[in-house]
């Protein structure tokens, strides 16, 4: 009886140890958390920074749709649909104060830009970014009040941090991140690729790639040390 108990205990102990070295997902190989270093960082751009900008953009569209000639959230010089006009988020706004929205083309494309502090989970560093966003034509699949479908080309996102570190995050040339229709305060899916280059004291130390396949959790495919 004692031998059986010892064998069973040993087997349980061995089983618990193997969980540390083998992934719980089938056919996914051995997992090392160091392989994912930087993934959460890049997700802050896809899931927080870009989405915050889209939220301000849709608020601007709503204000425009109400026929308002002034706003406490934005300063603007005309209709947001007119090429060349610019809307700027008020410095008193809690979300992205100073962000600029400029209509650049008649095909529902705007350029959003900002240079200021932005927080990644409490780390508030200077972030200088510019993105082109294009609204896909509205279809009957989208109900009034839902989010629009946006294609986002992140032309630059340069973040300068402490100890000489900085990052440059962009979408690859010619590609976009697709934020599909959404309801209840969130977009449903995000598809596309982001690239990141990390520098320390102006020396390139890492190159990373994040592929988004719809969901934030479980779905992203991440590689670094490229």
């Amino acid at each position: 009886m004692k031998k059986i108990a010892i064998i069973l205990f040993g087997a349980m102990l061995l089983a618990s140890c193997t969980k540390d070295f083998f992934s719980s997902d089938e056919w996914s190989g051995t997992y090392d958390y160091a392989e994912m270093a930087g993934c959460d960082y890049m997700l802050c751009v896809a899931d927080n920074l870009i989405v915050d900008n889209l939220k301000q953009m849709e608020t601007a569209l709503f204000i425009e749709s109400q026929g308002s000639t002034s706003s406490t959230r934005f300063a603007f010089n005309g209709s947001i649909w007119t090429v060349g006009n610019e809307w700027t988020v008020s410095e008193k706004s809690a979300l992205l104060p100073g962000m600029s929205i400029k209509r650049v083309a008649a095909d529902s494309t705007w350029t959003l830009s900002r240079n200021g502090k932005y927080s990644f989970n409490g780390y508030n560093y200077d972030t200088d970014y510019e993105m082109d966003i294009r609204m896909r034509p509205d279809t009957s699949a989208r109900a009034a009040g839902d989010h629009f479908w946006w294609d986002v080309a992140l032309k630059k996102c340069n973040r300068t941090e402490e100890k000489g570190y900085r990052s440059e995050i962009t979408t690859p040339a010619g590609s976009v991140l697709e934020y599909t229709y959404g309801t209840m305060g969130k977009w449903a899916y995000c598809y596309g690729v982001l690239g990141m280059r990390v520098y320390k004291e102006d020396e390139l130390i890492d190159v990373a790639r994040l592929q988004l396949n719809g969901g934030r959790y479980n779905d992203p495919s991440y590689l670094h040390n490229l």
Binding site: A37, G38, D40, Y123, E161, Y165, V198
Partner: peptide, 11 residues
């Protein structure tokens, strides 16, 4: 180690 800052990841 902190996944949300570059120093937290690479230092």
């Amino acid at each position: 180690y902190d996944p949300y800052s570059l120093a937290g990841i690479y230092e």
